[in-house]
Structure formats: structure tokens, C-alpha cells
Design a binder for these strands. Structure first.
Lengths: 336, 336
DNA sequence: GACACTGGCGCAAACGTTTGCGCCTTGCGC
DNA sequence: GCGCAAGGCGCAAACGTTTGCGCCAGTGTC
């Protein structure tokens, strides 16, 4: 079925292509009678404007690219969801790219996206490689970085959760419950959020006069298997910790499982607190006490800002940090 | 930074636009000396072809659309991942659309995608609305349906897991363990996979001479909260079942949680089996016995077939059913 | 030495839009 | 009755490619 074009509509309505275009785009006034004739022709023929030709001519694609490191984390589904909803509502399309944190792949994706003339970009990777950052900075492409350090560039914005605060909430909660011997299940050193959480946790402990020994800091891959392995290492030690702060829920779930396998009751023998509040966190046994990130809102904020910039060229807010909050469930021991 | 165009390269290399284009696309022979000159010019200027203009002219966008109902199910992350990886490897881009199973939204997305001249489409929705199916059938757009009934249309292929077999595996496993009183936690009647699983389960039970009463069939929304609610209803009955077959893992996890809350030990007092084998299934306590779907492969198969069709116009295989397999963990009681 | 062929390349017309420029026709003021 | 503004519309040139057609030079054939 051949597509209907502007010229078909024009012929059918007995006007010029120009007029049809102006009717479609409301871009100059057209006599009511003509307009109606054109609109009828559009409806009868089922005309839909070709967005490829539009893009070529007008240099706007109404497409935004999103590069993520997929990490197998349900966290991302919710995030993408937040982005995608808003895109749709504003008539934008989303091109999704899983970059695996591989610098070469990120850069390749960026190239592809540029070739497709995306209007804006959202990047959420745990590590931004050099060649990627460099390639990005050569463009003047409105970009929102998630999980990154703030910058001064006017075409770059950052949207984050306030991980330092989140970590503080977690640690304070444990301390309030009388739990002073806390192990930290961190992420890789290249992961900005992990570093923030680590800094926040350490600062809070420090204020309480606690300086955890090196054995209480275990690096994980931020996935369930990593949490599991880390917890086992901790439990092998002569004197296991009273509590564990896992830097995300997947890690906490792995830790939970390791404790279960070791026959340790949570929270009686060991308290565990997570971070993210992914969907399943409330369904684990025991249900996971965790720091809630406004995941969907994080995505929505990023895209809202981007589209706002594109549509009304409003300047970027350089940094937006959304506050996390504590969700108390069952995996931390009740106060005595 | 203005983009480099074909004409810039042409000027720089002292040849015509035509020649540069042919060098880029390897589409007709060019004298070695000239070719090298052109290639050098391309490298020096950093030329990258504009895929929008290409699409306009050649009517191929190297873009494929994917419409999913996001259902908050980690299942989808893995699936999308499978699709996306293969897309990237073949130089295609993926436009992602969350349609929420809303017919109007699905149709709207389809329109948008058509306007963008996608080359192919992958649809995974639990229910394909009428207006959507009709709009789709008016196009001759190569499309792979996942989770749908096979069709005879040459531009439509279906990729599935063999849910009937999967259900059989689950039920047989329970029967082997001496569990005859089984409740089924199904999905909505509009969900093709659920119907297949239901049919498979019922058939297997029937062969064993068992016909479950209506109270043993509970419909859920295929999410954790639904599984939780369904399980509670079941436990409220005077005589709860010995075993539960949940039609996906999220439902199983909800059920697990409900059993836990009711103080019922799994699997000693109640056996639970799931479906999908999502990442977290192995980390629940007890770890979930479930039917493993080759999720990533499902996605990979769909996209591989689609791209194969687009690139080498190989005809579609109308139906591919990938075999699931049983994964035995801890949530079903051991044989006596 | 005329001829046909071939390899190497360029011209220019598409693809489906958007948009600056400018041409009519009216209507109004004087 | 003339001038002028304004409203209503169309022409044609872009946007950056791909590609059919055809030109030119060089080579081999009889």
C-alpha cells in the first residue's frame, strides 16, 4: 500500500503542497473554507506526514537517544519506563542503547545516534569512558547524565538521587537500632553512585566515632551473585558483622540468600539494609528494609528537563538531586 | 560544529559527490588511487553519512520498532536485551515503545513508528487490540509477534516459548513428588501465554485423572501483588492446596511471601513452582523451582529472524517455539 | 585505422518535506 | 477612481543522499 504524500492531498483538495503543509503545521493562516477542504482530504486519504523528510528539512528529529548499562537490574526497567512515558506524551521517540559500560560500544552508539540526528541524549552508565566523553564534548548535543558528577557545560545536565543522603539514612537507621558493627557492600570504584554512598556512609559512621576496618568493606559487582559472594566472605570471618548495608537491593538479596544458606536468621542474627527499593524488595522473606530511590521520577525528571530544553529552549538546571527516603520493613532488627 | 557532508568530502578530494557516495557504499568500482584519496578525505574531515537523508532516498531506515507491555517484569529487561544486542551487531537501531496493553496507545505507537519508516517491528503485548491488529494488517511491515497465536500472513512471524510443554513439565514435576492437589495461579484470559499454560496444565492433570475444582483456579495480573493476593485467598479456604503452580515467577514470589506471612513453611507445608526463571528466582528463600524460559534467546531469535528477512529477504518461519526446561531448586518438596 | 567495448567517472533527478519570496485579489480611505 | 495594505495562496529552492544515464578516454580486434 503506497503511502499518501503531501502532493496527493494537495491534488485531492485542489490546492498547492505549500498550503497543505501550512494546514498540517498551523504555520500560517489559511482561509477557513480551504482549510476545511484540506482537512477533509487528509482524513479521507489517511495522510500522515513523513517524519524522515521532515527531519531532513527542518533538522529536528523528535527523537532522543538513551544509552544505558543494562546491568540486569530491574532498576533500569522502571527508569526507562519513566523516560519513555514522558517521551510518548510529548511526541518524541526513544532509541534505546545498551552499552555494557564498554567505552568502544558507547562511542559507537553515540555515532549511530548522531547519524540519526537525535535531538537530545540521556546517558546512564556506571562509568563514562574517555573516548566517549571526548566524542560527546565535541558535539553540542543537549544531554542529561544520570549517575555522574555535575559539570559546568551548558549543554550538559545531571540528574541524580542524593546518594550521600541515602547512605546517611541507612547508616543512621542501623545505628539507631544499636547496630554499630556494620559491613559495607560497595560497588566498583568506577561507579559514581557507589562512591557517593560510600562517602556518605563513612561520614555518618565517622560522626558516630566509628571507623570500620578494611575487612568490613567489600566490593561487589552490584548484582545478586556479587552480594551473595561478598556475604559469604563476611560470614567466613571469625567475627561476622551485626549488620550489612548493601549498596543496592540486588546485592542485598544476594546477601539475604547467603545468610539464609548459612542458617543465620535475618534480622535476629544479622540485619541487612538495601538501596533502590526495587519492586521485589517488599516480597523477599524477610521483606527488605531499604533506601527508596524515586526511580520512575528520576527518569521522568531527566526527560522532562531535556524536552523542556528542546521545546522551549529553557536552559538546563546543572544538577538535580532527588531525595531518597528510608523504607522500613523487616530485614533490620527492631529496637530493643 | 557544522556537520561534514558528502559535498565537503567531494570538494576536498577533488571528485564528484557521486564518486564519494560510491566509495562509501562500495557500490561501484572506483580506481584505487581515487578511492584512497576519497578515503583519506573522509578520515581527515571525519565524515559520517547522514542516515536521515539515506532513509529518505533509499527507503530503508535500519531501524526497528519494538512495542512491549512493560508489566514491570524483569523478564522484559532480558528480552529487550536479547533484541538490542543483535540489533547493534547488525547496525540497526531499536525504538522502544511501552504500550501498557492499551489498544489506543499501541495504535498510536504504530503510527509513529510508521512515520519514522521503520523496517521491521517486534511486538510483545499480552493482548493485541482490534484496532491495532487491523492497522498492522493494512501495512506490509515485516513483524515478529511474541506471545501470540501463529498466523498465515507471510509478513508476520511468531516466536514463542512452548508454554504448553512448560506447563506440562511443571505439573509433571509436582505429580512426581506426590502432589495432586494443585492450585493454578493463571494470568488474564486475554493473555495468550497464560491460556497455553492453562491448557497444558489442565491436559496434564487430566491425563493423571485429576480435574481441579474451580476454586483451585485463580486469575492474577501476573505481578507479585497479584500472586500475593491470590495466595491469600487460597489460604483462607478451609482446605488449602498442597501445591501451587504460578504462571510466572513474579506471581510465585508473591505467593511465597503470602505463605511466609501465613506462617506456612515452603516447601514442607506448601510447594510452589514458578515460570520464567528470572534472575532473582535463584535468590529467593527458598530458591524457586521454576520452568526456565530461554528469555534472552527468545529475543535474539525474534530479531535474528527479522533482520535476516530484511537483509537477505529470507522468508519468515511462521512459528518458532523454543523449549522451556525445568529448574529444580527448593520450593517443591523433596520426594519421600 | 575504424570500431566496439570497457573502466572510470560526473550530471542531475529524484526522495517528501519546509519556507522565503512574491504574485494576485479584495477592500478601504481619500 | 486611485493607491495601498492585507489576506490568501503558489513557486521553487533547499535539506543530504542514491542512482540511472551517459560522456570520455583508453584498449584490443579485425
Amino acid at each position: 500500500m503506497a503511502m499518501v504524500r503531501l502532493k496527493d492531498v494537495a491534488r485531492h483538495a485542489g490546492v498547492s503542497i505549500t498550503t497543505v503543509s501550512h494546514v498540517v503545521n498551523r504555520t500560517r493562516s489559511v482561509a477557513p473554507a480551504t482549510r476545511e477542504r484540506v482537512q477533509r482530504a487528509i482524513a479521507e486519504l489517511g495522510y500522515r506526514p513523513d517524519s524522515v523528510a521532515r527531519t531532513l528539512k527542518s533538522n529536528r528529529s523528535r527523537t532522543i537517544g538513551m544509552i544505558v548499562t543494562t546491568a540486569h537490574n530491574p532498576f533500569f526497567s522502571a527508569l526507562i519506563r519513566g523516560v519513555e512515558d514522558h517521551c510518548f506524551a510529548s511526541g518524541y521517540s526513544l532509541v534505546l542503547c545498551n552499552a555494557d559500560d564498554a567505552d568502544a560500544k558507547q562511542t559507537a552508539y553515540l555515532q549511530t545516534l548522531l547519524e540519526r540526528r537525535i535531538d537530545g541524549l540521556i546517558v546512564m552508565t556506571s562509568r563514562n569512558g574517555d573516548s566517549f566523553v571526548e566524542a560527546l564534548s565535541r558535539q553540542s548535543l543537549p544531554t542529561v547524565l544520570m549517575d555522574a558528577a555535575p559539570t559546568r557545560r551548558p549543554d550538559l545536565a545531571v540528574v541524580n538521587d542524593d546518594s550521600r543522603l541515602g547512605a546517611r539514612l541507612a547508616i543512621e537507621h542501623l545505628l539507631e537500632r544499636g547496630l554499630g558493627d556494620i559491613a559495607l557492600l560497595t560497588g566498583p570504584a568506577s561507579h559514581p553512585r557507589s562512591q557517593e554512598r560510600l562517602a556518605g556512609a563513612l561520614a555518618t559512621l565517622h560522626e558516630a566515632g566509628i571507623a570500620p576496618p578494611a575487612t568490613r568493606l567489600v566490593t561487589t559487582n552490584l548484582m545478586a551473585d556479587g552480594g551473595h559472594a561478598a556475604m559469604r566472605r563476611l560470614l567466613d570471618e571469625p567475627c561476622p558483622p551485626q549488620a550489612v548495608f548493601a549498596f543496592n537491593d540486588l546485592v542485598a538479596i544476594g546477601a539475604l540468600r547467603a545468610a539464609h544458606e548459612a542458617g543465620l536468621r535475618v534480622p535476629e542474627a544479622l540485619s541487612i539494609i538495601g538501596y533502590d527499593d526495587i519492586e521485589v524488595a517488599r516480597y523477599t522473606c524477610p521483606a527488605l528494609t531499604t533506601v527508596h530511590q524515586p526511580i520512575y521520577e528520576l527518569g521522568a525528571t531527566a526527560i522532562a528537563q531535556l524536552i523542556d530544553r528542546l521545546e522551549h529552549d529553557r536552559p538546563f538546571t546543572p544538577l538535580q538531586s532527588l531525595p531518597p527516603r528510608l523504607v522500613t520493613r523487616e530485614s533490620v532488627i527492631a529496637p530493643r
